[in-house]
């Protein structure tokens, strides 16, 4: 790895340095015994798979293994970029991701601001306990609940004035994905913002009130600016995840009727690789996804820093 070659070089003479160096290692031998199981874990389940990415450039055959399979150059990427399914999946991923960014990202911020305006602390606690809860349910569970709630004869569908169950309707399925995600995680997402808000110096509010600011002014000129950095950091992290729109949610909720609007890269990779056994092809698609994610993370972080915010690094 790149990391190993960038060991900090101490400014002592080589011989003296290596002697002291080894003594340092010896002194820490028990610490290394403790560290070892964890390092083995990272090597096995993180770095070995990273080496396994090479199969995106190979004709992977199970019998020959990762090392033994012959190289194939960029063949799989060429096939990938020529596959209409891939472009459908990419388009769906970007569209759904964009919707989620626009709607489910700001939702917890708004809710946190509203919760912060509640002065009755017992009432606030009860509301928080309730809205945090869905976060703890898995999509499998929620899928089961949503299927029965939104089945065509559940009463809810006609009550909401919908013609068909949104789970079966291509025109509303993406909206359904976004709303169900907001429902699940909006409450939980407020915690981090509420923490940021609670660390604001109360004297700021006091001063603003004396200057005649009303509640709206306080939110606009004190609360919001104070949590901007938190928002920016979460936004950067979110951008890195743009091509990961939530495998579980979509995998659980989608079905042949809405396939065309909801097959995303994650489900595409899963289908190709694990149900059809096209390992090299699927790895190429996955690598494309990780690469774009990393790129976006770097770009947004750069933009955020340029705009004078503190980025991730």
């Amino acid at each position: 790895m790149n990391g190993i070659s960038s060991v900090p070089v101490t400014r002592t003479k080589p011989q003296a340095r290596s002697g002291r160096h080894w003594r340092e290692w010896g002194k820490h031998k028990y610490y290394f015994v403790l560290l070892l199981p964890g390092l083995v874990y990272f090597a096995l389940f993180h770095y070995w798979p990273m080496a396994g990415i090479t199969i995106a450039f190979k004709d992977f055959r199970l019998l020959e293994g990762i090392m033994g399979s012959p190289w194939a150059g960029l063949k799989w990427f060429q096939i990938l970029f020529d596959a209409p399914d891939f472009w459908t999946a990419l388009r769906n991923t970007i569209i759904i991701s964009f919707y989620k960014l626009v709607f489910s990202f700001p939702a917890p911020i708004l809710l946190a601001l509203l919760l912060n305006e509640v002065y009755h602390s017992a009432f606030k606690r009860v509301i928080q306990t309730i809205v945090y809860f869905p976060h703890f349910l898995s999509w499998v569970i929620l899928g089961g609940i949503l299927f029965s709630l939104f089945s065509s004869d559940s009463g809810l569908v006609s009550f909401l004035g919908m013609k068909a169950s949104p789970i079966m309707d291509p025109s509303s399925f993406r909206g359904f994905l976004v709303i169900s995600e907001v429902w699940k995680d909006m409450g939980w997402g407020t915690i981090i913002y509420l923490a940021a808000i609670s660390s604001i110096n109360p004297e700021l509010y006091e001063a603003a009130r004396i200057d005649g600011g009303n509640r709206f002014h306080l939110v606009r000129h004190i609360t919001l600016p104070s949590i901007t950095n938190t928002i920016v950091i979460l936004l950067i992290l979110r951008t890195g995840q743009i091509l990961h729109v939530g495998f579980e949610q979509i995998f659980i909720l989608y079905n042949p009727l809405v396939f065309e609007v909801s097959d995303v890269i994650d489900t595409y990779v899963y289908r190709l690789g694990l149900t059809m056994g096209r390992y090299s092809f699927a790895t190429a698609a996955g690598l494309f996804q990780s690469f774009v994610g990393l790129l976006l993370l770097l770009v947004t972080n750069g933009v955020a820093r340029r705009m004078g915010e503190r980025g991730l690094w």
Partner: peptide, 15 residues
């Protein structure tokens, strides 16, 4: 580094 980059679904499965 494992926080920002991973082998992905298929390589992990193969391991």
């Amino acid at each position: 580094f494992t926080m920002i980059f991973s082998g992905g679904m298929i390589p992990v499965y193969l391991v």
